[in-house]
Design a protein around this nucleic acid. Structure first.
Lengths: 76, 76
DNA sequence: GCGGATTTGTACGTATGTATG
DNA sequence: GCATACATACGTACAAATCCG
C-alpha cells in the first residue's frame, strides 16, 4: 500500500517498492511481474499510476515490458 | 523455441523461423510442412499462435494451405 | 471399402496489454 | 477512475476432410 501522507509521488513510491521486491528476489527472471491490474490492487492506486511506476523502472533499466506478455526483470 | 523475452510477437518470431527453414531448403515442394500440432510443440506456443504465423506467411506468399491436407511451400 | 489416426477449420472462454474517450 | 473496444496469446473442445493400414 502507498503512503498517502508521504510527499513522494505515488508513482515513485510504487516504483521503489517494486524495485525493492525485485532486489529481494521476490520475482524470477522467467516469469512476468504481477499484472498491472494486480499491482493496482496491491498498492491501492489507479492503473495509470501503476503504469507510470513501471515506466520509471523501464527508464531506469530495471524492467522490460514485452507487449501483450507482461513486464519482466531486465536482463543485464 | 520462441524467445519469450524478445519483444517481437510470438507469431512473427515463428513466421520468420519457418520462412528461414524454407529458404534453407529444410522442406521440399512435394510434402506439407510439419503440422500445426508439430509446430506448436517445436516452438512451444499455442496452436492459435502457429496458425497466426502461417497466416502471415500466406499473406506474404511464402506458403499455401490446402484445407485438411496441410501447408505447402508456395509455388511461384 | 472400413475405421482409426491425422490435419486443418471453427468456436468458445480466459487473461493480458494497448488505445481511446 | 471508469468504461469500452480491440489485439495477442493460451487452452480446450469439437467438426470436417483427408490419409493410410
Amino acid at each position: 500500500m502507498v503512503d498517502k501522507r508521504d510527499p513522494t509521488l505515488f508513482s515513485e513510491q510504487v516504483a521503489r517498492s517494486i524495485e525493492r521486491d525485485i532486489r529481494d528476489g521476490k520475482y524470477d527472471l522467467e516469469n512476468p511481474l504481477p499484472s498491472e491490474v494486480a499491482l493496482q490492487a496491491t498498492y491501492g492506486v489507479a492503473r495509470g499510476t501503476v503504469r507510470a511506476a513501471l515506466a520509471l523502472l523501464r527508464e531506469r533499466g530495471v524492467v522490460e515490458t514485452m507487449p501483450f506478455r507482461g513486464t519482466f526483470i531486465a536482463r543485464k
